[in-house]
Design a protein around this nucleic acid. Structure first.
Lengths: 116, 116
DNA sequence: TGTCATGTGTACTACATAGTACACAATAAT
DNA sequence: ATTATTGTGTACTATGTAGTACACATGACA
């Protein structure tokens, strides 16, 4: 599923219950032109900027990491984490590339907050 | 240290031993104009593209993850790894943000190749 | 039936990215 | 001494990013 189609699906589902989720009104709340949101939803333009995607995620109650990923982007806070220690995280990520979900999850679970 | 200054320092050090590491010759080998590399080294322009940085790292025997980080970029292969499972890696990275180096290293060491 | 809101088409724009092309003065090599 | 090589200044360009502005036809609804 493309970014646009996904947004349209989600928005239309909410729209059924809440008439304030029209293209126009959502566009106004997230601060873009209605025609632009319309084009985004029909994949007539590339997905919007990270900032706009984040506002859209907020507005639609979606996970912004997921939405950003659909747009081929990585959240800038994650990028910043990697940039602090690029070699360390590069090694870790490449090792985890082919690991199954549960392995990554268990690694994450082991990191109990500030446990070092 | 900026990206440009770092490149200049590294290149000039090699240049002392090997006269083929002039701005012009390095530029030619990595496939850019000499004036462009010159501007890069003096931070007169933004760091080059990922592809160019990678060739430069190769040419100068430097770690490309590190050079990319100095340029504020994350290697596209790492980005792709995250994009495959954005929520999983988002959780992991945010948990590791404040972890000390050795903790991250030991997490990586635990992941013995294909150990699942 | 007239008004209002809806989605969308067309045209345009500002700024960033990633460079090229060429000329020139200074320095190094033969 | 002159030739070659070096680093760099100036000017220009193509493509991508992230939108805006406005008009228009359609459908809802009071």
């Amino acid at each position: 599923m493309t970014f646009g189609k996904y947004i349209r699906t989600v928005r239309e589902k909410i729209f059924k219950e809440d008439r304030s989720y029209s293209v126009r009104q959502v566009a106004q709340r997230i601060g873009v032109e209605p025609s632009y949101l319309s084009k985004i939803e029909r994949d007539q333009v590339a997905p919007p900027s990270e900032a706009t995607i984040t506002r859209l995620a907020q507005e639609l109650g979606e996970d912004s990491d997921l939405l950003l990923a659909m747009a081929g982007k990585v959240s800038s806070d994650l990028r910043d984490i990697i940039l602090q220690r690029p070699q360390l995280f590069a090694e870790l990520l490449r090792k985890l590339r082919d690991a199954p979900d549960h392995a990554i999850h268990s690694v994450a679970r082991e990191i109990r907050d500030g446990d070092w």
